[in-house]
């Protein structure tokens, strides 16, 4: 297994108290596989990604427990300089906001080239040539001229492709992409996702794709992990989950999205609001919003039940949910 995250916990100490951002995340990404982590804003997706990459703000952040096994080694036990060697060369990250992730006062050619001079000890001239090659690879027109441009001189979609180029530069085994297309228009999103999928399969990398878009997941993922209040509440192969979700939250999400292929009648709406991470409800965090909730849900935190050899669900009543039994 390329990446195995076991019961990861992260909290933030703030002036108003402790924010429990990640409360036991367990997931795996195999080589050549795309795992989508799906969740609404504030569910802890980015913090999970930062903890895996080792770029969490500590303090105020603190790893509360768990393991991040990369090819069997627990990254959380490594020294910072060992982690730095892994970052970029073995695992790389693509961020949502390319304008703040790229250095505004350095040309994109210099930034791409730096990957090769620093990590591979290449000469500046060779590094520059590799930078042009990469920009070509991510379909930036007139790459040999545009390497001299600064990030702000590119459109949002082009900047995102340049970030992909940076992430791919050293051919890492794992890419973590945190909402890489959320800020983009749909036609540009299609260009970028298309490119990412093509390169991912060509290089045989594992991809951990963070998104809140159930459409994007259906389009590209092999497996999906659904996050709620800092926990993975369901994980399954992508085809299974859309056919028959095994957690009421997943099911509510699927039913609440309007469809492109028909007009539909009134939408199902999950009642209430996502929880405040400073005061997560006891028992199952979803119980105040769940149509299936019973007394046990208010008391006992549901463990990750094994639904099948490839599926898990953190719901006491996953069987009922899976059967789609009427539940109102």
């Amino acid at each position: 297994m390329l990446l195995e995250v076991r019961d990861l916990r992260v909290e933030f100490r703030t002036r108003d108290g402790v924010v429990h951002a990640v409360n036991g995340v367990t997931c795996e990404v195999d080589a050549g596989e795309t795992l989508a982590v799906l969740g609404e804003s504030g569910s802890g997706k980015s913090v999970t990604a930062q903890a895996i990459m080792g770029i969490l703000d500590i303090p105020p952040g603190r790893i509360g427990g768990g393991q991040v096994l990369f090819r069997g080694t627990d990254l959380l036990t490594l020294k910072e300089e060992e982690r730095r060697r892994i970052r970029g060369a073995e695992m790389a990250m693509i961020f949502q906001d390319s304008l703040s992730a790229l250095n505004p006062v350095m040309t994109v050619g210099a930034q791409l080239g730096e990957m090769f001079t620093v990590h591979r000890g290449m000469s500046r001239k060779d590094a520059r040539a590799r930078a042009v090659e990469l920009m070509d690879r991510v379909r930036i027109p007139a790459a040999s001229q545009r390497v001299r441009d600064y990030p702000h001189q590119f459109s949002g979609g082009m900047r995102q492709r340049i970030m992909i180029a940076m992430a791919l530069a050293l051919e890492p085994a794992l890419i973590i992409a945190d909402e890489p297309t959320t800020a983009l228009d749909v036609t540009v999103q299609a260009q970028v996702m298309d490119l990412l999928a093509e390169l991912r399969s060509e290089y045989g990398m594992g991809l951990l794709l963070i998104t809140h878009d159930l459409g994007v997941v259906a389009d590209v993922a092999d497996r999906i992990a659904v996050m709620y209040a800092g926990r993975i509440v369901e994980s399954a192969p992508v085809h299974d989950i859309y056919k028959a979700p095994a957690h009421p939250y997943t099911r509510g999400l699927l039913d609440s999205i309007p469809r492109l292929d028909h007009k539909g009648r009134e939408l199902y709406a999950i009642r209430g609001l996502p929880p405040n991470l400073q005061a997560i409800p006891p028992g199952c965090a979803f119980h105040p919003r769940c149509p299936l909730a019973r007394d046990v849900c208010r008391k006992d935190v549901p463990p990750l039940y094994e639904v099948s050899g490839t599926r898990t669900s953190a719901c006491h009543f996953w069987r009922e949910c899976l059967d789609g039994r009427a539940d109102s």
Binding site: A190, Q191, I257
Partner: peptide, 21 residues
């Protein structure tokens, strides 16, 4: 270009990828 929330539609779909901005 709109991703639809149906993994079975992947094969049935025809994508028109526009070039440029």
């Amino acid at each position: 270009a709109v991703p639809v929330p149906d993994p079975d539609a992947r094969e049935r779909r025809e994508r028109i990828i526009l070039s440029g901005d």
